[in-house]
Design a protein around this nucleic acid. Structure first.
Lengths: 341, 341
DNA sequence: TTGAAAGCGCTACCAA
DNA sequence: TTGGTAGCGCTTTCAA
């Protein structure tokens, strides 16, 4: 009872180990009666095919790597992970997670040692800037490399990305179209490592520059240090302004949500006193009725995983590189400038 | 270049494959010069030890299973996962995730097929009720079984759990001590599968029953269907009450936070009009200044993983079963009954 | 300190 | 449909 190997099962079933193996992995090649008997005995003996042995024999690892910025606990990372997992797990793959590839030291270590070399069937790179040298290193793994929200498609076999720049352009334009004249973009500095954040800032700036041609516009990027208190820093910076803006455009909901809640304590209420839009449509955005740009990292994870599975199988991709658009979700934190509630 | 096996490395380095192997896994058994040379050549040839082969040879899988209720995307599950990962990854283990072991069908499938049999070195069971038959099935895996927030320690080699019942007792008592007379406990039905929720409800009820002996008390459990709209259901149920309560005790922050935000739209403001306490100290609890019971699933994950690693190594645990207490985090949503802001 | 060789548990080829 | 068998890439005795 317990710990039986394939030989014991074969003996108990009166068949060869080949047949036991086939009963599990090629059921169609085994007669119904034999297969049933084998599986039955295997169950009694607590036997199962060893993934390690299968992996060794097949030359596949049944494992993929996922590299991410920061912690998996952020909304974006969790959703991405869950999306990838939802495709890869049923396909028999485990995900080997490498977090915090966002510090100089971790990056160097990872890309020098390349601990995943020969040990994964594909690599996902989620949402961070990666330089050409690092891409070269990944190529030495000789496995498919799939990017999610990477700043460029260079060196990637497949990518799926949101158009952050355009998304934020849309959000900003929305505020400008509502007639707002004084727009502030509170922005936590994450510049070097998170491509999404940079792209969004560029989108805001471009929309404002375009808008200036048609309307008078007073806009600014309000940069605050990153870290756990970035929202409070942004709050202080906003309150320290000579004149409070009539619109706030946020790089992400995690900035917008605290601002909406805390500005109220200082007498600034949305949409009565100012409009605000977020980005992500992350948890509680709906609860506080935040107008925001929706992106769906879970779906992006699934798309990326689908591409990975095809590439692992040696198939060609019809569209290796996909770009998705963020969608404006109009809710209750924006109003035409000058209107009264 | 690329895809070299251990023989090529051995040849290029002028040593045997044994020495190559040792250079990686037993560096102390190889002379400095030889080791350096081998590792250098291995790097040039993009070689690395195969985990599959190591696993097969050693009899270990370097993989653990994590079974969870629902999606990994919930706050509790993500934190738990991240905690386990933070210990297991550096120790060389991948986590094979099994989500949604909370439907009758998924459970039956999982515990019948036992897909992890012979394929993991340990199993974590996170936060759900598991019956004796299922525990028996897990035992057939002949690997350590570690529970996180399981309703009982029976059948587990180790557990780490929060005392939900006592935590909620404390929260409720806190409200009673503030002098509140009319306390409602909005509760989403998750009864059968989530042991924590049940225990918390019991804690609330017991605290109220104890409190009744000393004060007059009007308390009730307000049960609403589970699902994505549970907070809105609770909101409706609260507003439909003949008399609005002066205190609300919530099974979790995800109930409390929407209630605080939405009740305000109906003129009920905390702490002016009512006190409310949550449970978890999850994201935005601090932002809205919610008084709540803090638990730390990340730390529980780490503790559980530490136990798992010892058990995998065949060591005995000093304290296989640990219970931690939730801590009251006093913030701004509670006030002595009758006080004016 | 190093090398030779057996064998971990399986899959897949070939033969029956 | 089934069985025999080589070999996947490594680790680990044992011997040198």
């Amino acid at each position: 009872m317990g710990k039986a190997d394939i030989y014991e099962v074969a003996k108990a079933a009166g068949v060869s180990i080949s047949t036991v193996s086939r009963a599990f992995t090629r059921p169609d090649l085994v007669s119904d009666k034999t297969r049933r008997k084998v599986l039955d005995i295997a169950d009694k003996l607590d036997f199962n095919i060893s993934r390690s042995a299968t992996a060794l024999k097949s030359g596949r690892t049944n494992r993929v790597a996922l590299l991410m910025n920061e912690e998996i606990t952020s909304w974006f990372n969790t959703q991405t992970f869950a999306g990838i997992e939802s495709m890869m797990h049923p396909a028999g793959y485990d995900i080997s997670l490498f977090q915090h590839i966002d510090t100089e030291q971790n990056r160097r270590e990872f890309f020098t040692d390349l601990p995943i070399r020969r040990n994964v069937d594909a690599v996902f790179v989620a949402s961070f800037a990666i330089d050409p040298h690092e891409t070269e290193q990944l190529k030495r793994l000789h496995v498919p490399i799939i990017g999610i929200n990477t700043p460029s498609v260079d060196g990637f076999d497949a990518t799926v990305s949101i158009d952050d720049e355009r998304g934020m352009y849309t959000a900003t334009q929305h505020l400008i179209n509502l007639g707002h004249k004084h727009i502030v973009y509170p922005c936590s500095e994450a510049a070097l490592l998170n491509s999404s954040i940079d792209a969004r800032t560029r989108g805001f700036i471009r929309a404002c520059q375009d808008g200036e041609h048609k309307h008078e516009l007073n806009w600014q990027v309000l940069s605050v240090p990153r870290g756990p208190a970035f929202a409070d820093s942004a709050l202080s910076a906003l309150l320290a302004l000579d004149e409070f803006p009539d619109a706030i455009c946020c790089q992400m909901d995690m900035m917008a949500i605290p601002l909406v809640l805390k500005l109220e304590r200082y007498g600034h209420r949305t949409p009565r006193d100012y409009s605000i839009v977020g980005f992500d449509d992350s948890p509680y955005a709906d609860t506080i009725n935040l107008t925001t740009m929706r992106q769906d990292p879970y779906a992006m994870g699934r798309t990326a995983a689908g591409k990975a599975l095809k590439l692992i199988d040696g198939k060609e991709l019809d569209t290796p590189h996909e770009v998705v658009e963020a969608q404006l979700v109009p809710r209750g934190t924006d109003m035409p400038f000058g209107d009264v509630e």
